[in-house]
Design a protein around this nucleic acid. Structure first.
Lengths: 363, 363
DNA sequence: ACGCCTTATTCAAACGTTTGAATCTCTTGA
DNA sequence: TCAAGAGATTCAAACGTTTGAATAAGGCGT
């Protein structure tokens, strides 16, 4: 194997090795339209030599010349949020057939890192950006920077259509209602609610769904049994919050038979808190979560939750991005879109019919 | 803002805008040594114009010319394994100060994807590769391909020093012993073991540690209470296995007071299985896991487990890679290294003193 | 008035690839 | 015999940046 100074095999190496010009070799190996005109024997010979020398086209030179990076950046605000991974998988499967490379970066909830990576993304000339806005996420000037560089952008997990960004997220309102209706159908009347952090838009929407479902069933929500998670930027902080609030609920001496938690980690925190006080889930109290992340599925009891079709959302996000890129190539523009994915209730073992109800029906 | 055909601002734009040559602009903005000779006023002017136009150097052109991609590929065999994320974080924090960009890709346990991404990595001229070999991982010809291209490689989660690859992994033997000793100290004598898949190297090592600890304490392991997970490539499959084996254990009618599971997911599966049979953890049976992933921490009871210093391992992996790169620049070579990270026992609520022991000491 | 040093700036080639246009060599038909 | 076309291959410029060498302009000592 020949070693050039750059350490990599180039077209020139191949050209010299088999006595053709660089152009011919390029045409053959990149399967340009002109390669039909190249004699079959030549093609064969060049291809053989290329693989023999272990040639890999230099993406930098190619991108520079073609003015295409074949790259789409995926900027996760916090990759350790289990919420992200299925989305990433969906994106990958959408990009793979288009032979685009995902440039996946994790801002680790740090504004500074976020900006830093954003700069790198722009330098690497990503043709599109998909932002995964899990948990709290302040966008501030991000959009200006990206827009200035005319890079199509799609956001998952947040509605930014009012800022002219195509967005995909779960239908939070429907999801909240789904969870609430489930508890109501099980006969629960006194339901404690743990709302999400105020800064998170999901919070209001899920809350609206919950209220709607309650109103529809003629059930009043005791304001003293409504809690709100603090504005903390760590995705696992919900667990602490749920644990703390469970203690508050029990200390408040207000009766309740079920807890509707903002997300799965919060629900798991609630379960822990109830258990520490000697209460069993679901026998003494039902708990329902939101998101359907892995820990909810593998804990015991499994947490009843609202599933988000994350993989599908990721897939759609990648498709939208690719569409926006082709649109821009044709000097047109893809209109801003909003997709609200339908949530699905996953019933596990953390919810059960209200024991109070059983007594009532007996009476 | 000026728009060129490429859609991006270039050095030429800046040069023309303030009447200097491209060279001068380049020298100033890339802070080359020569920039000391450039008049302070000129520097000022150029910098101002650059930020005004929103200039970002083209990474392709720069890398092509400099022959440095400033990129290190991070190839995860299965990113959905919670095990990976802390490692990635460690890598990121190691790369950040060196202003290297991590090129993170997820093979999703698929051989085809793995090869595909590997090709892309080579085309993008990553200067180093860090492989995260969670769960089962067949390396076959990967190494040849990378070695041919003279790219330094480091592997996390697997010992491949015999193949000449620097490796970082937890000291599995010590970890296995740690878990076993913990159970023994709690007074458990009849301990069921769920071994990992046969193909996974960790399996034998942890098993050796377990056996060693047992021998040291003069405790015999009942072969009928030793199970082995099947060779499945999905990281969450341990849960199913644990659940199934818990049933087998109970069905075998052999007495046991504790279960040592191969990893946390398996432990969670065991807990579920025991619960379904009406047994309480830890009152009726203790369960210990391995890895300390998120689900183990947030389930109730929290799973006692063996923590791996994953973040530190990731950090060290990135440092080794950077060292190997600088070594290669100086035409020397970094020797192959092996780091066995010290595991740490995390005691949570899934383990408790053996009730049989209590009776014995009373008697 | 000349060479020489310093300071400030520019030239021009190179990195590896792609591609429109050009070249060269055959055939073929008139 | 020559023009015209087809087939096969090559030229040369370009993508945006970096950098060793070259140039230009001033200051200073002789």
């Amino acid at each position: 194997m020949v070693q050039r100074k750059s350490g990599h095999v180039t077209l020139l190496d191949i050209a010299q090795a088999c006595g053709y010009s660089v152009s011919t070799v390029s045409i053959v190996l990149s399967e340009a339209p002109l390669s039909q005109n190249v004699a079959a024997s030549t093609r064969e010979q060049i291809r053989k030599m290329a693989s023999h020398l272990g040639y890999h086209p230099d993406a930098f030179a190619r991108s520079l010349r073609r003015r295409r990076s074949q790259t789409i950046a995926v900027l996760a605000y916090d990759l350790s949020d289990p919420f992200c991974i299925p989305i990433v998988h969906g994106i990958q499967s959408g990009l793979q057939p288009a032979s685009y490379m995902p440039l996946l970066v994790d801002a680790q909830t740090q504004r500074k890192l976020f900006d830093n990576y954003l700069r790198m993304i722009l330098e690497r000339r990503a043709e599109g950006v998909i932002v995964i806005a899990s948990w709290i996420f302040q966008e501030t000037n991000l959009l200006d920077d990206i827009e200035k560089n005319q890079v199509p952008i799609v956001i998952v997990g947040r509605d930014l259509t009012n800022r002219n960004v195509s967005s995909l997220l779960v239908d939070n309102e429907a999801g909240g209602a789904l969870a609430m209706r489930h508890l109501i159908e099980l006969g629960h009347q006194r339901i404690a609610i743990v709302r999400g952090p105020e800064e998170l838009f999901d919070t209001e929407l899920r809350w609206a769904g919950v209220q709607h479902a309650a109103a529809q069933a003629g059930i009043k929500i005791d304001p003293k049994l409504v809690y709100q998670l603090p504005n903390i930027t760590d995705a696992t902080s919900g667990f602490e919050g749920g644990l703390r609030f469970a203690n508050h609920m029990l200390g408040s001496k207000r009766p309740f038979t079920a807890v509707l938690a903002f997300d799965d980690l919060t629900a798991l925190g609630v379960v822990r808190g109830l258990n520490q006080a000697g209460l069993k889930v679901p026998e003494d109290c039902s708990v329902v979560g939101f998101d359907d992340v892995l820990p909810a599925a593998v804990s015991t009891p499994g947490i009843t939750t609202v599933h988000q079709p994350l993989k599908e959302m990721g897939l759609l996000a990648s498709e939208w991005t690719l569409q926006a890129i082709t649109a821009r190539e044709q000097h047109s523009e893809k209109p801003v879109q909003l997709h609200k994915a339908s949530p699905e209730l996953i019933v596990r073992m953390s919810t059960a019919p209200c024991s109070a109800l059983r007594q009532k029906t007996k009476a």
